[in-house]
Amino acid sequence: MTFKREPQVFGASITEVEFGTEGASVVFGGANTLPLYNFDAQAKHRALVGIEISDKGPDRSLPELSAFYSGAESLSDIASRACTAPGADFVSLVLESADPNGDNATSEDAAALAKEVAVALAAGGKPVVIQGTGNVDKDQELIPKVAEALQGMNVLLLSAKEENYKGIAVAAVTAYGQKIGAESSVDINLAKQLNVLIAQMGIKPGSYVMNLGAAAAGYGFEYISSTIERVKLAALSQNDDALQMPSITSVAEDAWAVKEAVVSEDDFPEWGPREERGIEMEISTAAAALAAGTDAVILRHPASVKTIADMVAALA
């Protein structure tokens, strides 16, 4: 008597979203099974792994990270170096300098930096993701400026929130043909609501992805994984087309901000070097987010990028 296999292939599928320019583009989404369930049916695309850089440069107090970026001083050099990280499908630039709670650089200056990086990345053959400041007022002004500066490059701009999606969607997608991420905070209903609102602006599926929120492993990650799982199940098993966009999860910021990745080895000698703690925190969080079903993750450390990319390849 043999084991009766019951592959779970759904009638619905996740929308495909492509960003980047010819020769340097990636596609995610497209699956009609639960994520990573290639034994049910082979997925069309692998989950994507991105490497994050900040316009303020890498944290050079981390020896391994510093070595990776050694000699890369200008932002475009840093971006070109990021392109060489093994396993990176795309590069994600955080416009940290524009944060009103920080340096508060003008949107014009930040957009110029974004342009510089995008040109370097195009040369390096990697598609571009741009992350705003997270501040809704600033992003409302900043993201359209970036969309304009990067016209024709088909970049993915993160993120449009419920408070500022209107301006961002119209400028970025309708006017300049970019892709956007719809960011909601860890709730399937909020995610759906925002997607519906964006669709009502005339934005077509295939032009936007979901950013369902993030948390580091151990810090309420169950809310993240359950939200991602519920969204995927609704999209596939109930054919809910307002939830069929692929999702992208930015792991880096949360993973590197928790105590485990922040405190020094002097203060916690038994915990060992800080860099390894940050890497493992990124790896664990990203692997769990992928297991829950996100379609793309953004990581900061090249070592985390490599491990997660290798894992995705091993499961493909």
Partner: peptide, 28 residues
């Protein structure tokens, strides 16, 4: 660490590792 994280969500009851450093234990 990556695989153990996947199996925590997806159905591992006992997870066998080579070792366990604090860097691995804290997130896992």
């Amino acid at each position: 660490t990556a695989l153990a994280s996947v199996f925590i969500l997806k159905y591992g009851s006992i997870i066998v590792m080579d070792g366990m450093s604090y860097a691995q234990a804290l997130p896992l």
